[in-house]
């Protein structure tokens, strides 16, 4: 990954930038088609978070307002949590094996022997997984609203900011896993461990807001603990705490730089 390629298109600056727009678009289209041919990834990123939300809604107690949650219901908390689940799945579970396999199988190398830089392939993958995250977020929001009457975020701008930062953090973490893993198998293994840890910190098993104080303070330092807090604050109408947004931004920056420095092209 080149510096700052978290979502940037692959067109390198320079005299040939105009001509390269064609190839980068062709790569994006081809990768989008390939992305749609992975039913496993599509299901876990796109459908599963909404399915989880629907299932949780079958628990009657989750639909009752609770005093210790400031009058909110458990199901309300699970809308941002399900969205974070989609992002973690896309970033650390789905994407790293794809990128690592592209390197392992010489696909990046083959592309290096053409006028197009192989970074175009990585950029397309990051972009597609990012788009899938946001698409899934939209679906979860709609399902929550229509099925269980979960109110839309009270502070939409803050919510969107937290959402974009969370997606960037998930993708940069995934890119770091990819940079550190020699093989697609290793990437899957590392990704799975990271996946479980991140699901916990995002509050999939126990919402961060319901965690005991000490545990919550620790979890808030992790990217998805911070994301969970920021999203929940914006959902209930206030601007997300700068400390949470700062933690997210820091994780994104550190892992983004680490991935671009350590990525091996072959």
């Amino acid at each position: 990954m080149q510096t700052g390629t978290t979502t940037a298109p692959a067109t390198a600056p320079g005299p040939s930038a105009a001509r390269r727009r064609g190839p980068a678009a062709a790569v994006l289209i081809a990768e989008a088609r390939l992305f749609l041919r992975e039913p496993g990834s599509l299901f876990w990123v796109f459908a599963f978070p909404s399915v989880l939300l629907v299932i949780l809604g079958f628990v009657p107690a989750f639909k009752e307002a609770q005093d210790d949650l400031g009058g909110r219901r458990v199901i309300d908390l699970y809308v941002p949590i399900s969205i974070l689940l989609a992002m973690i799945t896309a970033g650390v579970q789905a994407m790293p094996p794809v990128l690592t396999a592209y390197r392992e199988r010489g696909i990046l190398r083959r592309m290096s022997a053409t006028p197009v830089r192989p970074s175009a392939l990585l950029a397309a993958q990051i972009l597609l997984h990012g788009a899938a995250c946001l698409g899934s977020a939209l679906l979860v929001t709609v399902v929550g609203r229509t099925a269980y009457g979960v109110p839309l975020p009270g502070q939409p701008a803050g919510y969107l900011l937290a959402l974009l930062l969370s997606a960037a953090a998930a993708l940069c973490l995934g890119a770091t896993i990819c940079a550190l893993s020699r093989t697609a198998k290793a990437a899957t293994a590392v990704g799975s461990v990271a996946y479980l840890v991140m699901m916990f910190t995002a509050g999939v098993w126990l919402p961060v807001q319901a965690m005991p104080d000490i545990l919550r303070r620790v979890v808030e330092i992790t990217p998805f603990g911070a994301a969970s807090q920021a999203l929940e604050q914006a959902a209930s109408g206030s601007w997300p705490g700068w400390i949470h947004l700062g933690v997210l931004a820091l994780w994104t920056a550190v892992t983004g730089v680490a991935a671009s420095r350590m990525f091996r092209w072959q």
Binding site: L34, R105, G106, I107, T114, P115
Partner: peptide, 29 residues
């Protein structure tokens, strides 16, 4: 790279890319 075409030892393409898509993609380069 515009003058020289290469076939590399032990390189592959994306597993689910069709022959036609590969030819179209590389044409665009």
């Amino acid at each position: 790279t515009q003058l020289l075409g290469a076939q590399l030892q032990e390189s592959e393409l994306q597993a689910k890319l069709t022959v036609r898509e590969a030819l179209e993609l590389y044409s665009a380069f």
